[in-house]
Design a protein around this nucleic acid. Structure first.
Length: 236
DNA sequence: CCCTGATTCGC
DNA sequence: GCGAATCAGG
C-alpha cells in the first residue's frame, strides 16, 4: 500500500483526533502500527502524550555518587544526530501542565507547528476547567467557544448485543442460584443460559443436573456418552 | 505479557 | 520516503 492523499488525510485526522497508532493502522489497513507512526512523524505531526516520553525530572539533589550504569551501547556524540530537527521552541519549562497548544485567538487552524516563540500578551484564553480523555479541553458552562478538538472519535460499540437475547439469560445474569446450562453455541447471537432455578447445591437446574451428573455404571455396562451440551467441538 | 509512541537505520 | 526492528515507559 502506498500513502495516497486520502490515506494521509485519514491518518492525520485520526492522529490529531487522538486515535492510537494501532487504531489508525487497523482502520487504514495494509499498514502496520509502526508504519503509521513513522509516517506521522515524517508528516511532522508528532507531539502526543507518549507513554515513554514523560521524562522531565529536574535534576534532583542529593544524588551524586551512584554510578549511572547506563548507556551500554554506542552512546555517540550527544549532538549532531541525524537531520537536525529544527527544534522550534526551546521555551523554558512551563509550570503548568503541558496542555495542547493554546487555541490561537485568530486562525483556529490546528497547525501542527507552534513556532510562536514569545507571545507576551495573555490571549483571550478560554477558561480551562479540565482536560478530558483524548486531550480535549473541557470548558466552564459560561464559556462560549466550543472545544475545538471535539471529542475524539472513539470506536463505538452497540449498547446491547441484540434484541433477540434481551430476555434471555446472558453471562452477566448468571449467579449461583440460576442454572448456567448453556443453550446454543457460544459466540452466536442467541447464545444464552438456561436460567432456571438451580437444583440446590448444584450449578444447574434439576433437569440439567440429570444431564450433567450421571451415575457411574459398572464396567461393561456403560452407556455411550450423552451428547455434549455444545453439540461437540466445533470446527471453524 | 500486553499496550503505547519514539527512534534508528537498511532499504 | 518507507517501515521493521528496537527501545522504553505504563
Amino acid at each position: 500500500m502506498s500513502w495516497t492523499d486520502e490515506r494521509i488525510e485519514k491518518l492525520t485526522k485520526m492522529w490529531e483526533g487522538g486515535s492510537t497508532a494501532s487504531q489508525i493502522a487497523e482502520e487504514l489497513g495494509g499498514v502496520s502500527r509502526n508504519a503509521v507512526i513513522g509516517k506521522a512523524h515524517r508528516l511532522g505531526l508528532k507531539a502526543r502524550p507518549s507513554p515513554v516520553k514523560a521524562n522531565d525530572k529536574t535534576a534532583d539533589r542529593a544524588e551524586a555518587a551512584p554510578a549511572p550504569a547506563k548507556a551500554a551501547k554506542p552512546a555517540p556524540e550527544p549532538a549532531a544526530p541525524r537531520a537536525a530537527p529544527a527544534a522550534p521552541a526551546p521555551r523554558a519549562a512551563a509550570p503548568t501542565a503541558p496542555t495542547p497548544a493554546a487555541p490561537a485567538p485568530r486562525a483556529a487552524a490546528p497547525a501542527a507547528a507552534v513556532p510562536a516563540g514569545d507571545a507576551p500578551a495573555a490571549a483571550p484564553q478560554p477558561r480551562i476547567v479540565s482536560v478530558g480523555p483524548g486531550g480535549f479541553l473541557r470548558q466552564g458552562p459560561g464559556d462560549q467557544q466550543a472545544p475545538i478538538p471535539p471529542a475524539p472519535p472513539r470506536r463505538l460499540v452497540p449498547a446491547k448485543p441484540s434484541p433477540e437475547i434481551a430476555d434471555k439469560t446472558s453471562l452477566l445474569d448468571l449467579n449461583d442460584r440460576i442454572c448456567r446450562w448453556p443453550m446454543g453455541h457460544p459466540g452466536e447471537a442467541d447464545f444464552h443460559f438456561c436460567g432456571e432455578k438451580v437444583n440446590p447445591g448444584f450449578p444447574y437446574c434439576v433437569e440439567h443436573c440429570g444431564r450433567a451428573f450421571q451415575a457411574q455404571l459398572p464396567r461393561g455396562h456403560r452407556r455411550p456418552p450423552p451428547p455434549l451440551p455444545f453439540g461437540g467441538p466445533r470446527v471453524r
